[in-house]
């Protein structure tokens, strides 16, 4: 993976595969604390202790139907966070969803760029119309000023009534709204 937004997409796909009805995605860039924190929380099926341990092991997967028996998504994300002065925590319990937090040291020379958050977020919300995504972006600048952005597909869907989120004009709307939020929180330049 070349950037953090691609890892984020991979993690979101895990949540959807775990039958999450809701996925909460938080990106906090706090330059004063020198931290970039990505959190993904879902209300999917969750994992027992053993599976949770295995999920962080590069030689394990639950996707039995597929040819390849190793899953590298989570271990790679963990490695990338830990490699640049950050850390990685994943909590889960059977039937209670999963929460994953990756912390990157903001100014670490090896920190991957954040990449296109917009493409990850828009692709996921349109590509998984049955799942609701709750997005929170937060940026804290050197000056101490803060910029925040919130977006929830639940709000969009309520407003749309029966019209699907996959309707062309809605795709364009979501794309513009997300890009606007990223621009306002200055997340595109990280």
């Amino acid at each position: 993976m070349q950037d953090i937004s691609l890892h984020l997409l991979d993690i979101i796909e895990n949540s959807v595969r775990a039958h999450a009805a809701n996925v909460w995605i938080t990106v906090v860039a706090d330059i004063l604390k020198n931290r970039l924190t990505i959190t993904v929380k879902d209300d999917g099926v969750g994992m027992d202790e053993q599976t949770l341990r295995h999920a962080q092991d590069p030689f394990y997967t639950t996707k039995l139907e597929r040819v390849k028996k190793v899953g590298l998504g989570i271990p790679l994300f963990k490695q990338n966070a830990e490699m640049c002065g950050g850390n990685f925590v994943m909590n889960s319990a059977k039937g209670r969803g999963t929460e994953l937090t990756a912390v990157f040291q903001f100014d670490h020379v090896d920190r991957m760029p954040i990449g296109s958050l917009a493409d990850t977020l828009v692709g996921s919300m349109i590509g998984h119309p049955e799942t609701d995504f709750h997005i929170h972006l937060s940026r804290r600048f050197i000056s101490g000023d803060e910029a925040e952005f919130e977006f929830s597909t639940a709000v969009i869907k309520e407003e749309l009534g029966g019209i699907p989120i996959t309707y062309p004009d809605v795709i364009a709307y979501c794309n513009e709204a997300i890009n606007e939020g990223i621009k306002n929180t200055k997340m595109e330049e990280l």
């Binding site: 996707k63 597929r66 349109i126 996959t166």
Partner: peptide
Amino acid sequence: VVTQTGEK
């Protein structure tokens, strides 16, 4: 309708 899926 465009959707995303896992590996096959």
